[in-house]
Design a protein around this nucleic acid. Structure first.
Lengths: 230, 230
DNA sequence: AGCCGACTGGGTACGCTGTTCGCAAAGGAG
DNA sequence: CTCCTTTGCGAACAGCGTACCCAGTCGGCT
């Protein structure tokens, strides 16, 4: 069984010192991904970015997936955990969600990484520790707290994903999607969908910030088993 | 701009009749993915599965992504939409979520496809139409209903993802993750995490079915703007 | 009836990918 | 000073998505 990259030390003592560092490699990879998406993160390109040969990268990382782990954890490291928990766990978690959202916005490729494997590294674990600290006075079973954290993460990812799809420049792909949708709307067999598109975008309330409106409700529902009402 | 595959007709009239069909191709690709994941869905393998040359696939599909669209829509077609809306939109949406979850469970590769591009095809659009029909008596702005559907989808995906990670056979990767976690727990700098793992899994309530417990709350929060309470 | 032109199937090839292997060079430990 | 571990990396391999081109096939028009 292969040990996690975080359990292998960077320097092995003997032999020549490595010319690069995990941090530098991760930074280079993140930069590439920020510009060209995850597809731009190939072993050859990352190696070239730090001025190394492609095969040399494998001295630092066992597979490409491990490189992605490095990147994800580097991104998690951007979250500011210095603010002490206020005592209001709901507010603290929502604040954490905001912070997380900024990370997702800065590094959209995280959306293509996160779903698959959660991949905890040192920084990710620190974030989890912070979330648990936030909930320390809350009387809820530990698994529920874990689920709450996972849900928070997934919820934020979902939000950023949809805001990336809706807003922003209209891609060619979106246009062809819209064209198909138009043909569906006019085929007569989808009345509700047609009605939905007939309304003149009735004063769209600027997509209320679901982070502040819905997330607290979700967390409450998940963590406060007390006074349940249907 | 390239037209959506759903706007191009399968048969072009002139010339020899195609030897295969989109449905057959999609079915073969789905079968491959069910067994070996999305990685097993290569143009060459799919082509071989239907007894064709690799290059021939491009007569039916413009890119591999379009093939994935075919697959996703085929999966969406497995959802049973025959039950008429009951009048209780919440119950109907939860039932739809259950149906959706079965699809995700049957076709885990959907989890690696859905996040990126929502990719509406004929079947997907039918599901959306059904969801809207379910909410027709509900007095909420159309965009909110759309968000609710997207959220429902994302929520189900999130759930299936976590149940796939937690349950099931312990992979080698999970073991190395656990090993790292153990080292973190014992390093003394993560007290809350340590405490979380110290509790003897206190009567884990079998991960209550979040679909029935949390989803209705989320939907309520999103769609019922009335009597708001902090 | 015959032919033209549009269409399908698919072999081949290109550039890219992740990864492995083997070897030369380098430097700490004894 | 020597030995042995470790590093860097050129070359190679299998597999990928995709473009190109040619041969063969058939529908529609004349």
């Amino acid at each position: 069984m292969a040990r996690s990259i975080w359990l292998r030390q960077e320097r092995s003592g003997r032999g020549p010192a490595p010319e690069h560092s995990r941090a530098r490699i991760a930074a280079a990879a993140v930069e590439l991904a920020d510009v060209g998406g995850l597809d731009a993160v190939s072993m050859r390109k990352v190696a070239a970015a730090i001025g190394a040969g492609a095969a040399s990268l494998y001295r630092y990382v066992e597979t490409r997936d491990e490189l992605l782990e490095l990147m994800a954890d580097a991104a998690a490291g951007e979250i500011d955990l210095s603010r002490a928990p206020s005592g209001d766990w709901r507010a603290d978690l929502v604040a954490l969600a905001h912070e997380l959202r900024e990370v997702y916005r800065r590094h959209p490729w995280m959306l293509d990484i996160a779903p698959g494997r959660v991949a905890l590294g040192p920084n990710t674990v620190d974030v989890l520790e912070y979330a648990l600290a936030t909930m320390q006075d809350l009387d809820a079973p530990t698994p529920a707290k874990m689920e709450a954290f996972a849900l928070l993460n997934g919820f934020v990812a979902l939000l950023v994903r949809s805001e990336k799809e809706l807003g922003g420049a209209t891609t060619e792909w979106q246009e062809s999607q819209a064209e198909f949708l138009a043909s569906v709307v006019t085929d007569g067999r989808h009345p509700h969908l047609a009605a939905a598109f007939a309304t003149p975008s009735q004063a769209t309330p600027a997509v209320a910030d679901l982070l502040d409106s819905v997330l607290p409700r979700v967390l409450t529902g998940l963590l406060e088993t007390g006074g349940d009402r249907p």
